[in-house]
Amino acid sequence: MPSFHDQVITILPKLRVQALSLTRNRAAAEDLVQDAVCNALAAQDSFIPGTNFSAWMHRILRNRFISDLRKRRDTTDIDDVPAACFASNPTHEDNLALKDLSLALSRLPADQREALVMVVVQGMSYEALAEATGCAVGTAKSRVFRARRQLEAWMTGELPANDKLRMKVTALRAALETRRREGRDGSDLLNS
Rank of each mutant, 00 (worst) to 15 (best):
A115D: 10
A140I: 11
R149Y: 12
K99F: 14
F53K: 04
D100L: 11
Q44E: 11
A36H: 12
S106G: 10
C135T: 05
D94R: 15
R113A: 10
R70F: 02
S125G: 09
E131H: 10
A42H: 06
M124V: 01
L101Q: 12
R59I: 07
T76W: 02
L96I: 12
M57I: 04
L105I: 13
E152T: 08
A84S: 13
A136W: 06
A97P: 02
M118V: 08
S46E: 12
V144D: 00
L41V: 13
P109I: 07
R149G: 04
L105N: 08
V81D: 01
L151Y: 00
A110T: 15
S102H: 15
D111T: 15
Q150I: 01
A42N: 10
L108G: 11
A40M: 14
S125M: 04
D100H: 12
R62G: 00
T51L: 06
D80K: 11
A128G: 04
I78K: 03
L98W: 15
N39P: 09
E30D: 13
V137A: 02
V120Y: 06
T139P: 03
S142W: 05
L96H: 14
S106F: 15
Q112Y: 09
V120L: 12
A55C: 00
F47N: 10
F145Y: 14
A104Y: 12
R107W: 05
A110P: 13
T75C: 04
L61T: 05
V120Q: 12
S106I: 14
R146D: 03
T76Q: 08
A153T: 01
L129S: 01
D100C: 08
F65P: 05
A83C: 04
E152S: 05
